[in-house]
Nucleic acid binder design. Structure first.
Lengths: 246, 246
DNA sequence: TCGATTTTGTTCTCGCGTTCACAAAATCCT
DNA sequence: AGGATTTTGTGAACGCGAGAACAAAATCGA
């Protein structure tokens, strides 16, 4: 009785006051933001949860619940004011201020990211491009000059960088991450195909092309084997006892 | 009674026989595979779930449960044979055969992906690079020649492409996806910053740089506001009605 | 002014995924 | 040979997120 009352109270507190927006919701806010931007460009002033959800590719109940974590920004019977909601989400995400980003490793991918338009759009600013290769250091990409990896710490301090993007080979990713963290970076976006360890309180997100492809391959194979019933061959005797690796 | 017996039986069936590997597990298999490859290169023949989990950056119980969906490939008291497990996971994912991939949109990102080494590694083969820009068509990237978008369908058929990678601007992504699907592609990896709709049975995975950055920004802001207690300003009168936000 | 209609915000239920904890198997040591 | 030790495989509990469903608010029309 007291129990159920407490639980209900805790749940209600969770929902709004206790500053706890679920991770799953946070991950969708940028999607809603983009959908709203598209609608705004089309001149739409007000949108229902149904319309918004369709534009964002999600269920409308889920969208409403997600938005309810930010506050009551809709109007019953009417919908959401596009501009207003857009601003509120921007504010919640933290795009009302600029974040300085450093890109470490200016290979193919690093260059592509440096040129990526979506990067420079409101909210993020490339503070520096960094590489170890003496051939690259000093050359220019767009408006940026590639800086020397030796100066990483200074650059981070000077430009107040809080977000680091790692586009180095896998072997160097951990080392780069360590240096970023030591220099004060507290969020890392890792494109290198390796797991990196960071201290508590540092956010890491990972983007891995080959993992994505492999997940797709898994489903492809499932389709193929269900249809054609082609079963992959077993490995030649799983080692006599357990080992004697090939 | 009969109910609970049925449920228990169903659960047991789920676990191994009913060919149902949970999505969350599937998404981690590539990570385990990479960890195993690293261990193999270091000459490690056998690894415990604890070691493997550390290398993959996950909890050991989770790893054991994940692997149990594939079968009993470990030895109690000993651990897992690295080469054997590596093969089993490869087989489960579907890397014992090659998958043909087409990349549509050869801008900065498309070029970077085309050159990406991890792409060509075992399991995936770039069948074609495609773009609409007449300036690009015919030029070469590595061993590949950029082909005309008009020939997309023919290329897909000729090379038996089952996986499409979209690296076009957002505005064209849906159109490209439609054409890919109509031509027989059943898996899509979408780098364009837009939601794409596909029919049932077609797998889509989305990689979005700016969404990742925004998620990081959210957490950065949370850290900043918790520490410094800096509260973002409210919007100037959010439309006459709706509110008058505090 | 009052009922009908629309659409949000929220409660409730269900299922999935994570984690704990332990029994079952395999090895090692005496 | 047999007990001690290691480590897997899995049953069970738990927490989070998804979705259905509905009550509360706001508008509209008569």
């Amino acid at each position: 009785m007291t129990d159920s009352r407490n639980r209900r109270a805790a749940q209600a507190a969770d929902l709004r006051q206790q500053r706890g927006t679920p991770e799953a919701t946070v991950a969708r806010l940028p999607v809603y933001l983009r959908a709203l931007t598209v609608l705004a460009e089309q001149g739409v002033a007000t949108a229902s949860s149904e319309q918004l959800a369709a534009a964002a590719g999600v269920n409308s109940a889920k969208l409403r619940k997600d938005l309810s974590y930010l506050g009551s920004y809709g109007t019953r019977g009417v919908g959401y004011d596009v501009e207003y909601l857009r601003y509120q989400i921007s504010r919640e995400i933290g795009l009302t201020q600029d974040w300085s980003v450093v890109i470490v490793g200016i290979g193919n991918l690093g260059q592509a990211l440096a040129n990526y338009a979506g990067f420079t759009t409101r909210g993020f600013r490339i503070a520096a491009l960094v590489d170890t290769d003496p051939e690259l250091v000093g050359s220019e990409i767009g408006v940026h000059t590639i800086e020397n990896m030796a100066d990483l710490e200074q650059l981070i301090e000077r430009h107040q960088v809080s977000i680091g993007v790692i586009t180095t080979p896998a072997a160097e990713a951990q080392n780069v991450a360590d240096r970023l963290v030591r220099a004060g970076v507290t969020s890392i976006l890792n494109f290198a195909p390796s797991v990196i360890n960071v201290p508590e309180g540092v956010q890491v997100r990972k983007v891995d092309l080959s993992i994505e492809l492999q997940i797709l391959a898994y489903h492809e194979q499932r389709k193929a084997t269900v249809d054609g019933a082609e079963v992959p061959p077993a490995m030649t005797d799983p080692t006599s006892k357990v080992v004697e690796a090939s």
